[in-house]
Amino acid sequence: MPTDHHWITTPVTADLLRGALELERTAHGVLPHRLPARARAQCADPQLAMSESQPSGVRLVFRTRATAVELDTLPTKRVYVGAPPRPDGLYDLLVDGHPAGQGSVRGGNTLTLDMSTGSAETRPGPVGTVRFTGLPGGEKDVEIWLPHNETTELVALRTDAPVGPAPDRGRRVWLHHGSSISHGSDAASPTTTWPALAASLGGVELLNLSLGGGALLDPFTARAMRDTPADLISVKIGINLVNADLMRLRAFTPAVHGFLDTVRDGHPGTPLLVISPILCPVHEDTPGPSVPDFSAVKSGRLRFRAAGDPAERASGKLALGVIRDELARIVEQRAAEDPALHHLDGRELYGDADYRELPLPDELHPDAATHRRMGERFAGLAFGAGGCFAD
């Protein structure tokens, strides 16, 4: 461990960050955002604000000879009333692309959420430090992946040797948008969300615009994707529209077309993959909304149930089966004039047999083992030979 006077402090700037669309200057440092300010200004939903500020796929990337690295951050920890404490968010360290350590930051702000009343209260807390030592000597690429599910202000980066931006390795950029499943809910760590695993296996740079609870065909998200450089694009659509009971089939179809039209305005010939929902038995035939099962919360478990009625599909309410059929039809219709548009049934990533072996612990979100399976499957289907993202 170097002594204090050996530390070099390097400002955290955009050229050291990947996976964020914008950096906000705060009282403590900088806060990475995955939606730009113009998009955030068009929606006052606190769930969206929390989700887009959680740095799923955001990482510090730099070239250095340092053998010790410290990162000061101000995390915001979530506490759910009546539920067991959540573990601290994990920071994954990669050296030249290989896992080299993990750590957490204690303390930070606390956001207390009461799911029975919808109330939220924030209590300020102290800045903390994650420290990595014993890195190999010599020039190397260092990546620190920020906790995918914990809002993280970056305060200071310290190393025992100078730091510079990592060179561009010429890898293709994969821009992905989805729900909390793609955001990484219940994944083991930031590099083991299914999109992060798939990107690693596919040899591409991930830009993850997945938003827990926020994959709702919002026009401002489509415009953010339109304006973001990318070589490969995917959108995973469906489960949040059912969770929120947001729209009927009459609104869904033109909203999908409009979302894809907007993305295509900025990326006319880019491979674009539309992914329908993975299997979710509670919502296959039963519309939303999804509501917490408070009897389970009292026993220390968080579970969800479908509050809709299957008969309501006749009046246009959305269940996952309806959404899958309509997405397949929309893509087939559009692909006649857009050969770079592709479709993937989400049940190829997680289907009936997977549910029997690896059930969804809360009825909505896959666990860590399922994230790994989905990442490996997606890499094979999309990046493998004959896949729509094959190099």
Rank of each mutant, 00 (worst) to 15 (best):
A188G: 12
A196K: 00
L207D: 12
A187G: 08
T191M: 14
T191H: 11
V204M: 07
E205R: 13
G213P: 09
A187Q: 03
G184P: 10
S180R: 08
S185A: 15
S179P: 14
H183C: 05
G202L: 03
T191V: 15
G178L: 07
N208W: 08
E205L: 12
G203Y: 04
T193R: 00
L197M: 12
E205I: 10
H183M: 00
L211P: 00
A188V: 06
A187Y: 00
H177I: 05
N208P: 06
N208H: 05
N208G: 01
A198S: 13
A199P: 08
E205Y: 12
H177M: 14
S200V: 10
L209N: 03
A198R: 02
S179V: 05
G213Q: 08
S179R: 09
T191N: 06
P190E: 02
G178N: 00
T191E: 09
P195C: 05
N208A: 06
L206S: 04
G203H: 10
L209W: 03
L197A: 13
N208T: 06
P195T: 13
H177S: 15
L201E: 11
L197R: 04
A188K: 00
P195R: 06
A196D: 08
A198Y: 03
W194Y: 15
L207M: 12
S179N: 07
P190K: 01
S210C: 11
S185R: 15
A196S: 14
A198V: 01
S179E: 02
S182K: 12
E205C: 12
T193M: 02
P195G: 05
T192P: 15
H177Q: 09
A199V: 01
G213I: 06
L209E: 10
L209K: 00
A196I: 06
S189E: 12
L207C: 14
S200N: 15
P190T: 02
L206K: 04
L206V: 04
E205W: 11
V204S: 04
T193S: 00
P190M: 08
L201D: 10
T193I: 01
G184V: 05
H177G: 07
P195H: 08
I181G: 10
P195Q: 09
